Simulated assay, not measured.
Amino acid sequence: FMQHETDIGRLCVGIVIGIVAGEISSFIYLSLFYVFGIRPKRAEKQSLKPFARVAMPIAASSYVTSILHTVENVLIPYCLALFGNDRAESLAQFGLIRGMVIPIVFFPFAFLSSLVSILIPEISRLNTRVDKTARDARIERVLFLAFVFSTAVGGVFFFFPEEIAVLLYKDAAAAPFLRLIALVTPFMYVETIADGLLKSIGEQVYTLKTSIINSVCRIVIIYLLVPRAGAMGYTYLLIASNTFAFLTCMIRIRKKSAVRFFPMQSMVLPLAVTVALALLCRRLLGLLSFLPSGAAVVAVIGVFVLAYFGFCGILLKKRGVFNGH
């Protein structure tokens, strides 16, 4: 309805209205599904303590993280202004990273999260068993899949940042930031998955603590670094913060399970394949100059994806990621 609207304020209001309408629709749908679909006819009385023990840390983590992120989002434009930009330019740079780069980076994550969201309840069920062998095997497969998938995504963003930015936004301004954040895209993806895995095995209190520590450190570093380094300093902060979160999650999983890591198969080999294919695809992009630029970029990325996952599919099958046992 607002495709021809040019007023920024009205466009923002339209976006907010759309988000609110979507949330209300989702709530109504799920409520109806529960009432008429899955609610038991005779609900047995159960103690709320086991549920509260799980739900309270997760809820607290969401609330605290939301508050700290709000502080962070308010502080960043202020610190960018101290770097030497006026307020409008500071907000523009902040919007460039949070509104353009980050959505691009996390868009492919939807495909991975859909699969993992199916596996995490299964891991929670297996966690109730005395023998944790099956649980650890599932965790190992999920992490392996996350590494393989995220390495390809990071490679695409690192080797084709200008092309992707121009294709999506008709402007290459986001390309330098996209290339930098691409370096830690695997860490960002795997950390998000690992956080969910930790919660599925009862480590929600630990994730709450690390989330608070990470957020507080981010705020302090924003206050100290961004006024001196500007938007690029904020990008470096994102890299450091996500690396820290990745390491804390992986160390905790290693401590609380018997999960085995195979760096050669899950990291080195996918990275080598990514680099080799990306370099070949860049050459291919030059050969497709007779096509419209957007079509050439889509075609080349499509070739990369097919070739990469064709190769890694063999690796995934060999590792038993798609097996049910």
Score class of each variant (00 low, 15 high):
D131E: 13
L126V: 02
S124V: 08
V130S: 13
V116Q: 03
V105A: 05
K132Q: 14
L115C: 06
L96P: 00
F94K: 00
P108Y: 09
L112A: 04
F109M: 14
L96T: 01
S114N: 14
I102Y: 06
R138H: 09
S114M: 09
L115I: 15
L126N: 02
E122C: 05
E122W: 09
F107I: 10
I97K: 01
L126H: 00
M100G: 01
D131C: 12
G99Y: 02
T128Q: 09
A92W: 06
F107K: 08
L112Q: 04
I97W: 01
V101F: 07
M100T: 08
P121R: 11
A92Y: 08
P121H: 08
F94H: 04
R129Y: 11
N127A: 10
A110S: 15
V101C: 05
E122H: 15
F107L: 14
R129N: 12
L119Y: 07
G95R: 01
K132W: 05
P103R: 13
L115P: 01
L115S: 11
S114H: 09
I123T: 13
D131F: 12
R129A: 12
A134Q: 12
I102S: 03
R138Y: 11
T133N: 09
T133H: 11
L112E: 04
V130Y: 15
L91N: 07
D131A: 11
V101P: 00
I102L: 11
Q93P: 03
K132L: 08
I120D: 02
T128K: 09
I97R: 03
F106Q: 14
F109E: 11
I104V: 15
I102D: 03
L115G: 13
L119N: 02
I123S: 07
R135I: 02
F106V: 15
G95D: 02
F111C: 02
A110V: 15
T128L: 08
I120S: 02
I104W: 07
R138N: 04
V130M: 12
A137D: 07
G99D: 02
P103T: 12
E122V: 13
S113D: 11
S124P: 05
F111V: 07
A110W: 11
I102P: 03
L119D: 00
F107G: 10
I120W: 10
S113L: 13
A137T: 10
R129Q: 12
M100A: 07
L119P: 01
F94C: 00
I102R: 06
A92S: 12
I97T: 04
K132E: 04
F106E: 13
L112G: 02
R98K: 14
R138E: 05
I123R: 06
D131K: 15
D131Q: 15
R138K: 15
I139W: 05
V116Y: 08
L96Y: 00
R138I: 03
S113T: 15
L119M: 14
G95I: 01
T133F: 06
L91I: 09
A92T: 12
S113F: 12
I104K: 08
L112K: 04
S113Y: 12
S117L: 09
L96G: 00
R125L: 05
F94I: 01
F111L: 10
L126A: 06
A110G: 13
I102G: 03
I97N: 00
A110E: 06
I97P: 00
L91D: 01
V105D: 00
M100Q: 09
L119H: 01
A110M: 13
L91G: 05
E122R: 15
R135Q: 07
A137I: 08
R135L: 08
